[in-house]
Design a protein around this nucleic acid. Structure first.
Lengths: 150, 150
DNA sequence: TCGTATATTGCGACTCCCTGTCAATTTGAA
DNA sequence: TTCAAATTGACAGGGAGTCGCAATATACGA
């Protein structure tokens, strides 16, 4: 049993919720890949493996995983939310290419520091934060971006 | 005629679009208030004044205003997008209280600098960026928050 | 000022992404 | 094993935003 399963089970126990087959299958599928995904894509992957988990349960479990801290929900201004799993990924923020849609990650310790300053100034107790930079990636600028739709 | 109208008209001309009654009314209403608002609320305000502008046109015009740089669309992870007008508001980012829902603004020159560094490192050409800090505001922490829904 | 090509509008139906309802099923503590 | 309570799947429902289209408004050139 991986660390993520332990954490999830512990979270469910702690919050008086049950460890079910469906929840475990969703968690497992989330951790099978290492990229950003949306709820529908995750549901499709589960369908392909005949996991027998409904769309509603996928949404419900993602919400649970977000609250447990195992998964981070991201909102990039698109209609659908994206998710990424957290274990083994230090906190980071995102560069989003408006041309090819790819998402790049970055981290910078100075940002955290500034955020702490700002919170202190405002008497704010920080729970989470996000930072997104939209623009054009190196490949798109060089005109060698992979074919895309956006 | 205010600066925002001049800018808007110039934008429309430049991009081969027409200056219409509906667009002017929407812009005017956007600049009548100085807080964050969503498309539906703006539409309701226009209704109250019998502006006779349809919801579809409100959405279409907000998109235009966003593209023209007069209005900034913000996505806070809620169902509906928020907007804020830009003229007279230097660039800033947001602290969002998860308890009372209020939005506070902050700015910090160091952030811009770090973002430029990061873009340089990744060969990224920045178009825009957003930064959001979620947490509890001073009032809510002190237990004297105004009544709210969230 | 007038006529005309073209952009825009309002309407309402529609899409998309979820979320709520509820009967049937599963879980897990005793 | 028993059983109350939590969860699930199926599908209807909801909210925000978008689209198609006929009617209308805009603005360019004469």
């Amino acid at each position: 049993m991986g660390k993520e399963e332990k954490t999830f089970i512990e979270f469910l126990r702690r919050t008086g919720q049950k460890v079910t087959r469906a929840r475990c299958l969703v968690l497992e599928e989330v951790y099978r890949h290492h990229d950003h995904f949306d709820a529908e894509a995750l549901y499709q992957r589960l369908e392909k493996r005949r996991a027998g988990v409904s769309r509603a349960t996928v949404y419900r479990t993602l919400s649970l995983l977000d609250r447990s801290g195992l998964v981070r929900k991201m909102d990039l201004g698109e209609a659908r939310s994206l998710y990424e799993h957290v274990l083994g990924h230090p906190h980071h923020d995102h560069l989003i290419c408006v041309s090819c849609g790819r998402i790049f990650e970055f981290e910078h310790p100075g940002i955290e520091e500034i955020q702490n300053q700002i919170c202190a100034q405002h008497g704010f107790e920080m729970h989470s934060h996000t930072q997104q930079i939209f623009g054009r990636c190196r490949d798109c600028r060089a005109g060698r971006s992979p074919a895309e739709t956006s």
